[in-house]
């Protein structure tokens, strides 16, 4: 006997439930969680390192580093800055998922932390679909990638809470139409909170650190 079974279930449902569980763990420990997404080389690690340099004493950061390959280059840099860091090797997968974050949280000293930054795998397509349970999804776009990225990768701009526009020190060398870029962002995610800065010169970090400190200390 053949029968039709109505389901109407979101494919991402099981990941999203794990993500909710992660958020509960973060909340219990009064930790603000950030999921940092970007294309390869946009400056995720540099951004975290520059943020570390400027963190006020009351912020206790832990970092989760995602990479497709079993390399610890990025997490070594974070650890060298005196910050607890866990490396996740996704085994070729192009994104982190909630399950991987759950395992990584296990390895961090949660009781000592009030901020966790997750460096997602460098990719503009896949990470967008996978909620991790963090409180803010942040994309780092960078000037050399070009001003058309919102138009070509609308997906990743949709679910963002904050946009970082990095490498503004390179603006004199690159044809980047700020108006055009911002128009695309505005179409996809109206009113998106944006910080333009340089992880190389530190320009623009004050506003970002102020925002971050406020989020962490009011959590």
């Amino acid at each position: 006997m053949s029968q039709r079974v109505e389901i109407v279930k979101r494919i991402m449902d099981s990941n999203d439930r794990l993500a909710q569980n992660n958020q509960a763990i973060l909340d219990q420990n009064h930790i603000f969680g950030i999921n940092l997404m970007a294309s390869p080389g946009a400056g995720k690690t540099s951004f975290i390192l520059e943020t570390i340099k400027r963190l006020p004493a009351e912020i206790k950061l832990g970092v989760i580093e995602g990479d497709t390959a079993p390399v610890t280059i990025d997490s070594d840099k974070i650890a060298a800055a005196g910050i607890p860091a866990v490396q996740i090797n996704t085994g070729g997968e192009c994104h982190l998922d909630a399950n991987m974050i759950e395992m990584a949280l296990d390895e961090l000293p949660l009781e000592d932390l009030n901020l966790i930054m997750v460096e997602n795998v460098g990719n503009l397509i896949c990470p967008a679909a996978f909620q991790l349970g963090t409180h803010a999804n942040i994309l780092i776009a960078s000037i050399p990638e070009g001003d058309d990225k919102p138009y070509k990768y609308p997906n990743i701009y949709r679910g963002l809470d904050v946009l970082i526009l990095n490498k503004i020190d390179l603006t004199p060398y690159i044809d980047f139409r700020m108006d055009y870029f911002q128009q695309g962002v505005e179409m996809l995610n109206p009113g998106l909170k944006t910080f333009a800065l340089s992880a190389k010169t530190g320009e623009g970090f004050d506003a970002w650190i102020t925002w971050l400190t406020d989020k962490v200390t009011t959590k």
Binding site: G184, M187, L188
Partner: peptide, 27 residues
């Protein structure tokens, strides 16, 4: 992504296209 082809306004929003569902199965 393009501005409105009718009036060129960038003041637009995404109305559909984000679905990812298992709708039904036959068993």
């Amino acid at each position: 992504l393009q501005t409105c082809p009718n009036c060129q306004s960038p003041d637009v929003f995404i109305e559909a296209g984000e679905e990812m569902l298992v709708h039904h199965i036959d068993i």
